[in-house]
Computed example of a mutant assay.
Amino acid sequence: MSNTRVHSSNASILSDFKEITKMRLAISVVFSSVAGYFLGADNIDFVVVTLLAIGGYLMVGASNAYNQIIERNLDALMDRTKNRPLPAGRMSVPVAFSIASIFTVLGLVVLYIINPKTAMFGAISIFLYVSIYTPLKTKTPLSVFVGAFPGAIPFMLGWVAATGKFSIEPGTLFMIQFFWQFPHFWAIGWWLFDDYKKGGFFMLPTGKRDRGTAIQIILYTCWTILVSLIPVFGVTGKLFLTPVSGVIIFILGLGMLYYAIRLFQQKTAEAAKKLMFASVSYITLLQIVYVLDKFIRQWI
């Protein structure tokens, strides 16, 4: 019996640790960073890749822990978040703050080992997310605009880690993920509108699940597709995409746009949920196509 209790206790601690750092989200951010590194690196250094993955996870984990500390009372009001470690009482604020602080320091040190600029952008990301985006979520729909900045940093962070400099190439990667944030987060805001309302969060541009919000989702989806295709035209330095890959990206974009239009037509939570999954698929597949395009060109 005591062994069972120990095992379940350990499983609970691990589960709470994964929840406070939002492990799945952190892993997706690490994926974006590593994709950016592969695009920027002339020669792949797997020590740097490992440091980038560890540093990126630590920084995202810290941001999420701070976020949950600040929003713990609001999280208790929403079905989606009321069972998180803090509102459920399974973890104390001092423990969560210790995790967040240790992750911040270690994350910055690890990223600094790669190069100072990578650490600087990591620090900017955590500051914007925790100090500006999080407080604004209950004040104004513009919080999504502010949150798009730290959300767009990971893809470009990988390029900066590979080259040690910020230029048009990582700037383009930043813009792709920046515009993508809007249809992605507005889809989530629409899908979970009622739950967000309980916590007093303003996520949709008009504040409502209406025609205006749906039109803006379509517009920003179009902007995302267009920005994603800029590297095809050879105007973004070393970041280049072949026409074949451009066509693939365009088709993927049309798939995302289809779900954005369906949301406009149906205006349902289910349609928003489908768009959210389509947006995640789009950005993930886009990053894979970009990386494969580069290495296939090198092999040929």
Rank of each mutant, 00 (worst) to 15 (best):
S2L: 14
T4W: 15
H7F: 12
S15R: 07
D16V: 10
E19A: 10
T21R: 00
T21S: 01
V29Y: 11
V30N: 08
S33E: 04
Y37A: 13
I44P: 12
D45M: 11
V47K: 13
V48W: 05
V48D: 07
V49W: 07
L52Q: 09
I54K: 13
G56H: 12
M59L: 07
G61C: 03
G61M: 00
I69Q: 05
I70A: 06
I70E: 02
R72N: 09
R72Y: 13
N73M: 11
N73T: 11
N73G: 06
A76S: 09
T81W: 01
P85E: 06
P85H: 09
P87E: 14
R90E: 03
R90N: 03
V93C: 00
A96P: 11
F97K: 09
A100H: 01
S101Y: 09
S101A: 07
S101F: 10
I102C: 12
I102D: 09
T104L: 01
V105P: 12
V105G: 10
L108I: 01
V109H: 15
L111F: 02
L111G: 03
Y112E: 15
Y112I: 13
I113K: 14
I114D: 03
P116Y: 14
K117R: 03
K117L: 09
T118C: 15
S125Y: 08
S125V: 11
S125G: 12
Y129L: 01
Y129V: 01
Y129C: 00
V130A: 02
S131P: 15
T134L: 01
L136G: 08
K137A: 02
S143E: 13
S143N: 13
V144Y: 05
F149W: 10
F149R: 06
A152W: 05
F155A: 02
F155G: 00
G158E: 12
W159L: 11
A161Y: 05
K165F: 14
E169Y: 10
P170M: 00
P170F: 00
G171F: 02
L173D: 04
L173W: 03
I176N: 10
Q177R: 08
Q177T: 08
Q181A: 13
P183W: 12
F185Y: 04
A187Q: 11
I188R: 03
W190S: 03
W191P: 00
D195H: 05
D195V: 06
K198E: 07
L204D: 01
L204A: 02
K208S: 14
R209F: 06
R211F: 09
R211T: 12
T213Q: 05
I215S: 11
I217H: 00
T224V: 08
L226S: 06
V227C: 08
L229D: 04
L229W: 06
I230H: 15
F233K: 09
F233V: 08
K238E: 11
F240Q: 14
T242C: 06
T242H: 08
P243K: 04
V244Q: 06
S245A: 13
S245W: 10
S245M: 10
G246I: 06
V247W: 13
V247Q: 12
I248W: 11
F250T: 12
L252K: 01
G255T: 13
M256E: 11
M256P: 14
I261W: 05
Q265K: 10
Q265E: 07
Q266T: 07
A269E: 02
E270M: 04
K274Q: 06
L275P: 09
F277K: 07
S281C: 09
S281R: 09
T284E: 04
L285V: 14
Q287W: 12
V289Q: 03
F295E: 00
F295D: 01
R297F: 05
Q298C: 07
Q298E: 08
